[in-house]
Amino acid sequence: MNSPNKLKSAINLVAPFLGLILVLALFSAMPDVSSRFLRLANLKAVATQSVIVAMGALGMTLVIITGGIDLSAASNIALSGVITAYAINRGLPPLLAVLLGILTGTLVGFLNGLLITRLRLVPFIVTMGMMGIARGMAKWIARNQKIDAPLTWVNELMSKSPRPSWLLLAPGVWLMIVLAVVMAVVLRRTVFGRHAFAIGSNESAARLCGIRVDGAKVAIYAVCGLFLGLSGVMEFSRLTVGDPTVAVGLELDIIAAVVIGGGSLNGGEGSILGSMIGVFIMSFLRNGCTMMGWPNYIQEIIIGIIIIAAVSLDRVRHRSAA
């Protein structure tokens, strides 16, 4: 009983990485790009490109574990980025501007949670409405154009050649890694994380066991918003302007990353490690395709196939385990 269990847990440990390894192996084997693909410079570029989706995925994982969804993610990123740019433009200290951006994201998430629990609406509807509201607010505040902001240290966050150079990776990448570890610990080692899983697995059981389900949900959407706000700051840092039309459709990339990483839209399942791997599978695919000179539409088709394949593989794995 024990050794097959160990084998199974070993497989389960490696399984999430398989997709990523496959993608890496595939492009490393391509004669046209093999020399450049696994170079440090390219890895750094991919890591930096991943930061925005990864930050969003950290929050989205939490929400999807509870059986919810946040369709307003991309709009929230745009709004938070615009607010940050606006604040810097108005001469606020950069740190304060960044905090304002993060606060904006948190507030949008908090509002999502409040509406979902108070109005008893499904998250899909509430966050779909919020998608329009946040996007519209962003355009309104930016008067339908890009907000230019003077360069500050905030723009260094996503720089591909970080200063000091011993950092190796952009500060944003380091922040992403640290926050991923923090969230993994929160999910696995705290009461809050366990309640998130319980709510997603069986909400009525959670309620019966005395968990304050509504309060937990509001907190969870607020935390998701916090990460999206951070993601917005990163978006601003990368663009150096506040662009209200940026990141359209990015919420689907974020959701896809979580789902490829084993998150179940029915709730109760998902992990930070999985979601991060999902993010990198998509980033490396995009990067590899670009290097190959494949057109955009090929990337879209491949990523579409990956999403369906990853989720169906996950289901097969679960069925055999049950």
Binding site: R194, F197, A198, S201, N202, A205, L208, G268, E269
Partner: peptide
Amino acid sequence: TLAPHLTVEE
């Protein structure tokens, strides 16, 4: 009253 995804301990 049990959450199917959670472990016995949880």
